[in-house]
């Protein structure tokens, strides 16, 4: 039989080891964040946020078109994905046992595992190649497909977490299942659904691969979603591989903007979720 002492030592080693791993994981994130802040902060100023990119080789200029482009592409993606995703989640939550529901759930899980570049390629084949024209819309489509499985899952969870007694109460009043769900159950689940939506936005906001052959990028002010458009994450990529030092710095600046936006969305989601938990009886 092992002695008490050797067991204590083994225990201490195990605990220390797992602590070091946890520390390392947190450290990696902090190092990345710190590095981006250090490198990117130098690039960020009023001009950077409000001006168009300058032609290659000329100092200065900004990523204002990319900021607006990110908002437009992600915004359209939200408009496409959220009604489909939320209604699908609602269907799965209400009719969970059917064969069709489990098929949908399985397909949604598969979809969430497909690499984003593959989805970009699909968007290219569907919306770019036939028109021989890059467009922000095709990027939004790719984003929407990426968001869909996340929205389906979080909406299903959110709606399922609403006490069954609330749905029954509505049904017992002679409301139809659909009306009960839409008017009574959905509003209760709403904060959690919005949280899921924010996290899905944070997830796609930094996606770059599907943009390479959809939004394509643009040096101009572009507000028309049927045209190629600058997007922040794409600018990070093109500036990073540019041979010009000034553009490399701007790449870090754009990356910092993205990180801040994603962080803000995550924080907002947490705040929403916390108020939701406090509101629950």
């Amino acid at each position: 039989m092992k002695s008490y002492r050797s067991r204590r030592i083994a225990d201490a080693v195990g605990v220390t080891w797992s602590f070091l791993c946890a520390f390392l994981a947190a450290a990696v994130l902090l190092i990345i964040l710190g590095y981006i802040v250090v490198k990117g902060a130098a690039a960020i100023n009023w001009q950077f946020l409000t001006q168009l990119p300058h032609p290659v080789g000329i100092e200065g200029g900004g990523v204002a078109n990319g900021i607006v482009g990110s908002i437009i592409t992600v915004g359209i993606a939200v408009l496409i994905a959220s009604p489909i995703g939320i209604m699908t989640g609602l269907y799965l939550a209400l009719f969970s046992r059917g064969g069709f529901a489990s098929t949908v759930r399985f397909l949604s899980d598969v979809l969430s595992g497909i690499p984003s570049i593959t989805i970009g390629l699909f968007a290219y084949a569907l919306l770019v190649a036939p028109f021989k024209h890059f467009s922000a819309l095709s990027a939004s489509f790719a984003f929407a497909v990426l968001m869909l499985p996340l929205l389906v899952r979080t909406s299903e969870e959110a709606i399922r977490s609403v006490p069954r007694a609330i749905l029954e109460g509505a049904l017992a009043l002679g409301m139809t299942t659909f009306r009960s769900t839409l008017r009574i159950v959905l509003p209760v689940a709403w904060p959690s659904i919005v949280t899921g939506l924010l996290l899905a936005i944070a997830r796609v906001a930094g996606e770059t691969a599907p943009l390479l052959f959809t939004a394509f990028g643009s040096p101009f002010w572009e507000l028309n979603p049927t045209n190629p458009m600058a997007v922040l994450s794409l600018q990070v990529f093109t500036y990073a591989i540019s041979p010009y030092r000034s553009q490399n710095v701007q790449s870090w600046g754009a990356a910092l903007l993205l990180v801040v936006a994603v962080l803000a969305l995550n924080l907002l989601a947490r705040v929403l979720l916390r108020t939701r938990i406090r509101a629950a009886p």
């Binding site: 006490p163 007694a165 609330i166 029954e168 109460g169 509505a170 017992a172 009574i184 509003p187 209760v188 709403w190 509101a279 009886p281």
Partner: peptide
């Protein structure tokens, strides 16, 4: 019902 189940958002 057994437990009061007012609709919380209304």
């Amino acid at each position: 019902f057994q437990r009061p189940n007012p609709f919380p958002t209304l």
